[in-house]
Amino acid sequence: MSQRVLITAGASGVGRAMAEAFAEAGAQVWVADVDEAALAACPEAWQRSRVNVADEGSVASLFAEIAAEWGGLDVLCANAGIAGPTALVEDVSLDDWRACLSVNLEGAFLCSKYAAPMMKAQKSGAILITSSTAGQYGYPNRAPYAAAKWGMVGLGKTLAMELGPHGIRSNVICPGSVEGPRIEGVMEREATAKGMTRDQVYAGYASGTSMGSFVEGRDIAAMAVFLASDGARLVSGQVIAVDGHTVNPDPKV
């Protein structure tokens, strides 16, 4: 039986790359996203649902659909997230702080909460949480994002301990700077905040890794497919960076 894989924020970016990689590996793919246009552009072979992971009712309805259609779930990729504000901590509003934690941390929690009973019933499953290297280091001007991503690491490790006795694994993937529209927006805001150019910020991010490079969505997707495979059957509770090896999370250019 092919794997049944749910990917949140799966209609674009890293999530889309994950969906394509799992589909190529022969899995059944279900993508959940808030972007209806991006969902409509996904392959017809994929199951698609408009879901707000920060809303429990929306998440509960999604998992009810999955139970009715698939009868279970083998892999949860809790991938949804937003960048949050780029500002010094004293300039971050409480509303922006809460919005960032709600989508990133609470979204991963809610999806895990509803996936766990389904996986326990079948005594197997894999939960993959997309955190960030911001969940491993301090991240100036991004306090809400870093706090959420650190929280996701704690969530993933705790799930591994709770669910391991039921045959369920949980791991956390920490992407570095991923090429694409989201990081472009972050770099533009950071450039403005620091009085730098976008290219200077880009060079600084890349030089902060030993391999001198950003990563691509396919790099994250390849790790997800591996962690969900039998080849990683005893890999659980791990936090794995796919980032070109970050050596300085806040390089000065």
Rank of each mutant, 00 (worst) to 15 (best):
R48S: 07
A80I: 05
A146W: 03
P165Q: 03
G15Y: 03
K120I: 14
V235W: 08
G13Q: 10
D55F: 00
I173R: 00
A221C: 01
K123H: 14
M223L: 15
P175N: 06
V103C: 08
E188V: 04
G72L: 01
A83V: 13
L76M: 02
S177L: 08
S58K: 07
T246F: 03
A78R: 02
P165I: 06
V31K: 05
S124Y: 09
V225N: 02
V242G: 06
W150L: 08
S12K: 10
A224M: 06
W97C: 07
L6N: 03
V29M: 08
D95L: 10
A99G: 06
M196F: 01
V239S: 02
Y145D: 04
S49Q: 09
A27Q: 05
I129S: 04
C77I: 11
S93V: 06
L88V: 05
G212V: 14
G212P: 12
A224S: 13
W46Q: 10
V235G: 04
P85G: 04
A146E: 09
G81S: 03
S58D: 12
G13K: 03
A23S: 14
Q28I: 15
P85V: 11
A224T: 08
G208M: 10
P117R: 07
S124V: 03
I220D: 02
M223D: 01
L94P: 00
P144S: 13
D74P: 12
P175Q: 08
G57C: 13
V253W: 14
T86H: 09
N52F: 01
K252I: 12
V153N: 09
M18T: 00
A87N: 10
M211I: 13
L163D: 02
P165T: 06
R48W: 10
G164H: 00
G138S: 10
Q122E: 15
S102K: 13
I66G: 04
A221T: 01
G212I: 15
S49F: 04
A191G: 12
V153W: 13
T133Y: 11
G204Y: 01
A32Y: 02
A193C: 00
G244P: 07
A121L: 10
D74Y: 04
M18Q: 05
G212M: 14
Q200I: 07
G167R: 02
S131G: 09
R218Y: 00
S49I: 01
A25I: 03
G195W: 01
W46N: 08
L110V: 08
A40Q: 11
D219C: 00
L128R: 06
G151H: 13
G156V: 11
G154F: 09
S229K: 07
M119W: 02
G212C: 10
P144K: 12
R189C: 05
P117S: 12
A40R: 11
A126I: 15
R142G: 04
E24L: 10
Q47G: 13
V34A: 12
A147E: 11
G195V: 01
G208T: 11
D91T: 04
L88D: 11
N171L: 05
S49Y: 04
A19D: 02
I240E: 03
A160R: 00
T209E: 06
E190N: 11
V178T: 14
Y114H: 15
